[in-house]
Design a protein around this nucleic acid. Structure first.
Length: 545
DNA sequence: TCACCTCGCACCTTTGAAAGGA
DNA sequence: ATCCTTTCAAAGGTGCGAGGTG
């Protein structure tokens, strides 16, 4: 772990060269002084405005390559990591101020897609959005110095298609397009956020958008994953990308996957089809499947050209969710002070323990703490916005073709934003575990621009990204939920609010995530875990076959 | 029939505890 | 006693492909 940290920091330094990837935030407006419980930054000062903050997407080139091919992310019932993993380099923070970094994934449009003729096509209207969940970085809250010291990795984030997922993974619909977003929230004196006047910024890297699938559709994506993901190394061929040698003892023969064959066939068919239809030879079949992301038309046909610019009205059901999944080494937690209480109150559904929201969660004001030790990166907890009038704005999509959109906002008094226009969407109840719902604003198609404005009412946790021309969905008790996924967090409701680290922990602090204080905020107390060094993608080049 | 999903598999990396040395 | 490095087993992350489902 320590090695990972150090190496990660080293990588960090090496990759810190300013570039066009960095996005400076526009000045944020001052928080409105109307909040009855204004958040007080852990350190006041010039950084109250987050205008100097810059975020750089790590491995942007790799992301770009995936993006050009049409990124697909596998979603499974058990949860699947994203690859490339979401990592960013942050700079411009106040070193002493505590921040909370979190990621959410929102629908990119309201379409369902299918992979046909070697390209993605709109196949109909999107299914109701899944309960929105937020993945809070396990280090949160941490000082700006901490975040800036090294890469911030969200590689532990997992995606699932299980609508009843108890592990806190982000729930998505298959064959839909999504856009991850990074939120940087300034923690208040309670290491919480969500109260009014909370300063935060949202960053959207449009090249991180993807289509969720249960099995890869595009052979090019498969090859990119295999070539760059260390865990898929076993599928790498010796030289030919299309052939891999069976590692079954005694069976040394090349294996041509079905997918490869299918892709070959489709490519050939598409190649011919393209010729026939357009009378234009694209040169290589893969060209036909290339998306024109840079021009704002990721999906070329079927009227989805402007799909990502569509707006979804979504509302948020104010309630709280809180879930954890247990570290693989269950015994380890026996040493932890929080273990017993957790297990005693938790509903264990499987070997991987997860914890339901205790009855007390019915109150949005109940603080929920989590233990620092439990915040190991392999554990996750869910928090749902309670009574959250989530204001999810979306970064503008002006003219950024390769730079992330940035929103810089303040939680403040309610603003009379216009609303998204998808109020007809009804979100599926998220089972007994997750009862809250929250709006998840679809992301306007790429080209985000920086936005800064005061944020409206935030009685509860709410994330908002500024968006010119876009409105924020009003809170609604019947819409999809947004919860916080805190890796390593554990359910401690009704228990000791603090959890102490094991001796020798790098940061001798305890972490406590208390979701929704009496002000309706989410509290992360003394977060200090180092994020685990991420697996780095080698960046080997995929060779078109 | 078909598109999509689930599951088990082999292969691989990652993780962290244990052991040993400085 | 402390710190560092190495070793190793277990956990867990991959894509594949057969089979299931609606």
């Amino acid at each position: 772990m320590l090695q990972d940290k150090s190496s990660s920091v080293t990588d960090e330094r090496e990759s810190r060269a300013p570039s066009s990837q960095e996005t400076a935030l526009p000045p944020c407006r001052s928080p409105l002084p109307v909040s009855p419980a204004p958040m007080v930054p852990s350190s006041s000062g010039p950084d109250q405005n987050m205008e100097n903050m810059k975020v750089v997407l790590h491995e942007r080139e790799l992301w770009r390559r995936f993006h050009e091919a049409g990124t697909e992310m596998i979603i499974t019932k058990a949860g699947r990591r994203m690859f490339p993993s979401y990592k960013v380099k942050v700079s411009g923070m106040n070193p002493k101020t505590k921040y909370i970094l979190l990621v959410d994934i929102v629908p990119a449009d309201d379409h369902r897609y299918k992979f046909c003729d070697n390209k993605w096509m709109v196949a109909g209207k999107a299914e109701p959005a899944m309960p929105g969940r937020l993945y809070v970085h396990p280090d949160s809250p941490a000082t700006g110095a901490h975040w800036m010291r090294q890469l911030v990795s969200f590689q532990k984030l997992k995606l699932t298609n299980n609508h009843l997922d108890p592990f806190g993974h982000i729930i998505l619909n298959s064959m839909h397009k999504y856009q991850p977003r990074l939120h940087i929230v300034k923690a208040d004196e309670n290491n919480a956020f969500g109260s009014r006047n909370t300063a935060y910024c949202t960053h959207v890297f449009h090249e991180t958008s993807f289509i969720s699938v249960t099995s890869y559709q595009n052979h090019k994506i498969t090859q990119l994953k295999i070539e760059n993901n260390p865990f898929a190394k076993g599928f790498r061929g010796s030289e030919d990308g299309d052939l891999r040698v069976s590692r079954i003892p005694g069976k040394e023969y090349p294996i041509i996957s079905k997918n490869m064959v299918r892709q070959k066939i489709i490519s050939s068919q598409n190649h011919l089809t393209g010729k026939l239809r357009a009378g234009v030879l694209s040169g290589h079949p893969q060209v036909l499947s290339s998306y024109q992301y840079d021009t704002g038309t990721p999906f070329s046909n079927s009227g989805s050209q402007d799909a990502m610019s569509n707006n979804f009205p979504q509302s948020r059901d104010p309630s709280l969710m809180y879930h954890c999944f247990k570290h693989r080494d269950n015994s380890r937690h026996l040493e932890l002070g929080c273990k017993r209480p957790y297990l005693e109150t938790a509903s264990v559904l499987s070997e991987e323990h997860y914890f339901r929201s205790p009855p007390s969660y019915e109150s949005p004001l109940v603080p929920h703490s989590y233990c620092a030790e439990a915040m190991s990166s392999r554990e996750a907890c869910m928090y749902g916005g309670i009574d959250t009038d989530s204001r999810v704005g979306v970064a503008d999509a002006d003219d950024l073709t390769s730079s992330p959109s940035v929103g810089c906002n303040m939680w403040a008094a309610r603003q009379p934003y216009p609303h998204y226009g998808m109020e007809g969407i009804s979100y599926q109840p998220f089972t007994a575990h997750f009862t809250n719902s929250a709006p998840i604003a679809p992301v306007p198609h790429q080209a985000p621009s920086m936005v800064s404005r005061p944020q409206a009412d935030t009685d509860g946790f709410s994330l908002s990204t500024g968006q010119r021309g876009l409105s924020v969905a009003p809170a609604s008790p019947s819409s999809t939920s947004t919860s916080l996924v805190v890796p390593g967090a554990r359910n401690k409701a009704g228990l000791s609010p603090l959890y102490h680290r094991k001796p020798g922990s790098p940061m001798q602090s305890h972490r406590d995530l208390s979701a929704y204080t009496s002000q309706g905020t989410i509290t992360l107390r003394d977060a200090s875990h180092q994020y685990q060094g991420g697996m780095s993608s080698a960046g080997s080049h995929w060779s078109d076959s």
